[in-house]
Each structure stands twice: as structure tokens, then as C-alpha cells.
Design a protein around this nucleic acid. Structure first.
Lengths: 267, 267
DNA sequence: CAGTGGTCTAGACCACACT
DNA sequence: GTGTGGTCTAGACCACTGC
């Protein structure tokens, strides 16, 4: 089997462009090869061909599979790695990023204690207050790209550090992608919630957007967080997205900022 | 022997160029070539060899100057570009990033109006309340890596959008790097503050860290922001850094979040 | 047109991890 | 040793900008 004709025979990746042949094709998009490769790898991730924590094929393997050079695959993987979708480990391979097993903090949570390092308080104590299956209100539906009345799972919980409540949050999940997840299962699950999502439902949160405000404690939140009524709280509304910018989770959190602060790095 | 002298033989692209910046600095580290190139370019930026908005030499020029291949220079520039220190423009060249001229919002400000797009309110109205030269307290000195009592410039101002005050902030600058900057000059300057820093003092803010809390309006802040006493405000303490992780600015801001919210993107 | 960044290739070697 | 990602090179061609 000869190794010739990989480049000129432009065949495989995505029928990139018509070029001079009569095909016309009129595709206005001239995406570079490496971006097409990137898309193909992304497909594999979305469809669960390689699951979080697993290795993907080596650069050479992918290069021959896609009929491009190793350098082109490399650039595609580089992109996906800087987006935190893949993780390279020299000598071992390239792995699908997972934020489940790593016992670190919660994904996306940027609260750090006033004194001490981010993890110095030990694990948070979880207290589930409510967990049920319900139907989406108009607001919830809009945030999750559902229709009003679609089935959702809802949970409310309090997170405490060394006995002091610090976070009260309501969580909404679309029921469809989490088919089979009962409110009970969600309430009783130990360990990182995102680990459950990844291992059981092949749902991986890729990025998130937050709206942050300062609001007074009210409507019973002051009791759950054990602060005086009217105490300023950090209100954080977060929508988390999977691979194709599909929203998969809505959280409305209230953070106490007397014991912790929200840390952000800008660049 | 012989074919591979570039890596092992420490020919040190740093020492090779006769031009400027005879740093050398005896780097005992065997970092990859492209990282060394990256450091050399960074030096040029720090020392003002190329100023914000200007072009840097072409990849080929830099390659010959540093005695490496174009691909290696490219990788170094890629890194600096993803760090927002350089901006590539196909067909034109690579430019030193500037956040001065671009009439966009304020650098690092992530406050978005509740309705409308980020810039839909037009420019903010500035109202300087106080601006003076003073000496650093222990807290200020620590944040700016100075010694207590060192000279600093301090300013307090209110930013309003369409007539409604939204931000109250205190700003501290170390006096030394801004030699010649008087309180009057700072108070009367029109246009983005960071433009002044870049053009007049060759100080460019590269990144920043923020601590965010919710606090009640008090100590006269309620009057300046025209809210009731005790209204929750977003408290944002920000330290901005220049090239070598040197802190150059401290801001303590209070944001009203009834008309705006703080937007954050996580990934 | 020449000059710049952008893409792609092919091959070499290095650094690391497993066996 | 084998296989992986990581670095570096040299040269080709493409796409864009400006003269």
C-alpha cells in the first residue's frame, strides 16, 4: 500500500472544496484542513466515541485515518486542548478531559475562603433540601432552550464549609438528556454531580456563563444560609453548556461573601 | 555528532544578536527554543522596543535575527498572541496589542446593562471626586508590592450611564513608574485612562485579578451612588499587572447591580 | 507586484512513560 | 525498546494587504 496521494486526493476529511473540478460546490466556507479535523474529532467526542478519561488515538493514527499529516492533526488537537476538551500527556497519549474524577473543587465554582488556599477547608458538606421532577417555567425553559412545560429536574441544596453554610443553590436540568435520572437518584448520589453526568449520561459541561449581582438575603434564603435578613449575598446565575453550545444546566446560587470571596482572573 | 548542534550546544539565540538589550541573564534553564524566543520578544515589549499599536518585525526577520527557523518564531508569537500581548493581521504584520485606542469599553470592566448590548448605553460619564498624591498605607503598599509610605497617586471617581451612577471606584497607582504624572493631569485627562498609561508611560496592563464580594452601601458610598443606605453592592477589588507580573494598579470598586450585572465566562 | 501571516507537509530528533 | 507527545527545521503553497 503506497502512501501517495494523501494531499492531492483531497478525498477524506470533509470534501473540502471543489477546487478546479467541475463540481462547483459553491461552499462559501473555505475552512482550513486542521479545522475540519478539529470538527471530526469534536464529533467523536459528542457521539461518545471516546468518553471522558479515555485516550483518543495517537496523532499518527488520526493522521492516517484522516489522510493528513501528523502536524495538521497536531494543530487540531492543540486547539481542542487549549479549549480544555482534550488533555495531552507526554509519553502516554491524548485524553478526553474529565472534570469528574479529579477530586478538585467543583467545576466552575470560584469561591475561595478569605484565609487559606482554595481547597484548605476540605470537602463541602452537602445538604439537599429539595429534589423533584417538574415542568419548566417560561424562564427556565428559555435558559435551557426548552419549551415551557418540558420536563426538568430541579434540586435545591446548601453547601457548607466547616459547618458554616456558604452556598445555597437551585439547579435545573433538562430531563431528556438525563433520561432515567430520578430525583431520588440525584438526591442520594455522593460525589461530584458532574461525575454522574459524565459517567452515566455522557454529558460533559464544557463552558459556562454567569450573571452576578448583589442581592439582599430574603425569601427564606436568610434562614438557610444563617444570616440576618437583608444581608448582601452574591447572586450567581449560571448556564453551563455541552459541546455544541447546548445549554444543559441552570444554576441560581446565593453565596455568602463574609467568609469567602469570588475570585476572578482577567486577561 | 554534528547534525544537532542547535539544541545541545547552547548557542543561545539570546547572546547572538548584537542589537539592543544585552540582557543574556545566564539562564540555567533548558527551556524549548520557542520559549526562549518568546522571552526575548517579551523583553522587547517590556523595554518599549516596540510600543503598543506598532508592528513588530516580520516572522522571517525575527527568525534570522534569533537564528532559528520561521516556524519556531511562529510558535512563540502564537503563544504571545493567545495571551493577548500581540495581534496578528494577515497580510499586514504582527502588532503590539493595545487596549487604549480601541474605543471599546474599559479594559477589564465586565459590567453589562440589564437590557441591551454591552456598549448600547454610549460612553460613561466620568466624575472625578478626588485626585491626589499621597503615601501608601500598609494595605495599599502590599497590594502594589511597595513599601509602606511610598508615594502613590490616588483617585476616586463615579461612572454614570445615561445619567445614573453605576460605579464608584478608588484607584491607586505607584508613583514611581508614572513619574511626572500629577494628580491634576490625571484628573483632567479625557479618554481611557489606560491610553494615557500606554502612550505616556509605556505601562501596559496585561492581566488582572479580582476579589468580588457583596457589601451593603455605607460610609457615604450610598450618596455617591444614589442608593439607599444598606443597598447591596458588588465590591470588586482588582489588581492589574504589567508584563512581568508586576502590579501596577489597585482598584476598589462598588458596582450597582440593579441596572447592570457582572458578566463572566467560564471554561 | 512583493511582503506578510496562514496552512500543510515530511522528516528529524528529544523527552517521557511503559514494559 | 517501543510508542507517545514535544520540538525544530526547511520548503512549498495559499490568502490577504498595499503599492
Amino acid at each position: 500500500m503506497s502512501t501517495t496521494s494523501f494531499r492531492s486526493a483531497n478525498n477524506s476529511p470533509a470534501a473540502s472544496n471543489g477546487g478546479t473540478s467541475g463540481g462547483a460546490t459553491l461552499t462559501p466556507s473555505f475552512s482550513p484542513l486542521y479545522q475540519q479535523i478539529k470538527g471530526l474529532i469534536l464529533n467523536g467526542l459528542r457521539l461518545g466515541e471516546w468518553k471522558p478519561g479515555e485516550v483518543i488515538p495517537s496523532e499518527m493514527d488520526l493522521a492516517t485515518r484522516f489522510h493528513v499529516s501528523q502536524g495538521t492533526v497536531r494543530k487540531a488537537i492543540d486547539d481542542l486542548a487549549t479549549e480544555n476538551l482534550l488533555v495531552r500527556r507526554q509519553g502516554k497519549g491524548t485524553f478526553v478531559a474529565t472534570h469528574a474524577e479529579q477530586q478538585a473543587q467543583f467545576r466552575f465554582l470560584k469561591l475561595v475562603p478569605n484565609s487559606g488556599t482554595p481547597g484548605s477547608e476540605g470537602p463541602a458538606q452537602r445538604h439537599i433540601i429539595e429534589c423533584r421532577r417538574t415542568s419548566a417555567s417560561a424562564n427556565i425553559a428559555r435558559a435551557l432552550a426548552l419549551r415551557t412545560g418540558d420536563a426538568v429536574l430541579q434540586a435545591r441544596r446548601v453547601l457548607s464549609f466547616v459547618g458554616t453554610p456558604a452556598i445555597l443553590e437551585d439547579i435545573w436540568l433538562p430531563a431528556a438528556p438525563f433520561k432515567g435520572l430520578t430525583a431520588e437518584r440525584l438526591a442520594n448520589y455522593q460525589g461530584p454531580m458532574y461525575a454522574l453526568f459524565e459517567t452515566e449520561f455522557n454529558v460533559r459541561m464544557v463552558r459556562a456563563e454567569e450573571k452576578i449581582r448583589a442581592e439582599p438575603a430574603a425569601n427564606g434564603r436568610e434562614k438557610l444560609l444563617q444570616v440576618a435578613s437583608g444581608t448582601p449575598l452574591l447572586s450567581v446565575e449560571r448556564i453551563a453548556y455541552t459541546y455544541k453550545d447546548v445549554p444543559m444546566e441552570l444554576r441560581r446560587g446565593y453565596y455568602r461573601t463574609d467568609t469567602h470571596y469570588y475570585h476572578n482572573r482577567l486577561s
